[in-house]
């Protein structure tokens, strides 16, 4: 147990030591999005009745930052220690594959939630948000960060170089989060794209998270939470299988 806790603590330290890059920078990015999009669109759009576009945007940005940073934590830590070679010091220890998974997962969730919460707290200066269903907010934050933390572990294991990981991030994670309804309601999309969006698990995370604030969303939050939970379980099972087999870690 102490081995797993040490690994968790080390992973937390690792991002906290460079928190200007790992926490402050994504908060800044989210604020820029808020500034630009709300300036450009706030007077023209009202997605839900009684909810300003700026208010609508905030939960989306919070969740997007949370998802991207949860993914970045486990994936960048793993790829870095693989490229540097120091992952060997972890592989020499009695830490089991399950403990390895849980430690990386928990640290990723901590980073994602730290960044998400920071974005939320900073935007409170400009936008006042209701918190109608706080348990949904918490549930989606935990589930979303867990899913992305696990996906980050998969990416960190499967990729061998920084550019491969960057490709994974830019061509899969970024489009999926951007097209998940951060900036719009999928009801505003043409029917085809509306249907396509429903196959994007990130859409359910963002929609359900937003439901927690406003009490309204595009689909039922219970359905969204179930879909996210199932996605998390499937990704975790795949990750554990990879770790158990020693794929690309143990020859």
């Amino acid at each position: 147990m102490r081995g797993m806790y040490t690994l968790f603590k080390k992973e937390i330290w690792r991002f906290w030591k460079v928190s200007f890059q790992t926490v402050a920078a994504p908060v800044m990015t989210a604020l820029l999005y808020l500034l630009i999009f709300s300036h450009a669109l706030a007077t023209r759009l009202e997605v839900y009745p009684g909810v300003s576009y700026t208010a609508f945007l905030v939960p989306g940005l919070v969740m997007m930052s949370l998802l991207q940073n949860s993914f970045a934590n486990s994936s960048s830590s793993l790829i870095q220690s693989k490229v540097m070679g120091n992952i060997v010091f972890l592989l020499l220890t009695p830490i089991s594959y399950l403990e390895f998974f849980l430690a990386f997962l928990a640290a990723s969730m901590a980073r994602g939630i730290t960044v998400g919460l920071s974005v939320f707290l900073v935007t409170m200066f400009w936008v006042h948000l209701p918190l109608i269903h706080p348990w949904y907010i918490l549930g989606f934050a935990l589930m979303g960060s867990a899913m992305m933390g696990a996906l980050g572990i998969v990416a960190g294991i499967c990729t061998e170089k920084f550019d491969q990981l960057a490709a994974f991030q830019n061509f899969i994670i970024m489009p999926l989060t951007f097209l998940a309804g951060v900036f719009y309601s999928i009801h505003s999309l043409p029917p085809l794209w509306h249907q396509v969006s429903r196959f994007n698990p990130f859409f359910y995370i963002i929609d359900g998270f937003r439901y927690g604030f406003f009490g309204q969303g595009d689909v039922s939050p219970a359905l969204s939470l179930s879909i996210v939970a199932v996605s998390f379980v499937l990704i975790s099972m795949a990750t554990l299988q990879l770790l158990k087999s020693g794929y690309k870690l143990r020859g």
Binding site: V88, F89, P94
Partner: peptide
């Protein structure tokens, strides 16, 4: 090979911790 994030003592404490030493 080494972890560029930590100093020698931190690194040794972490390493011992992975083995269950406090």
């Amino acid at each position: 090979v080494f972890d560029p994030f930590f100093n020698v003592r931190e690194m040794l404490r972490f390493q011992a911790g992975y083995f269950g030493c406090g």
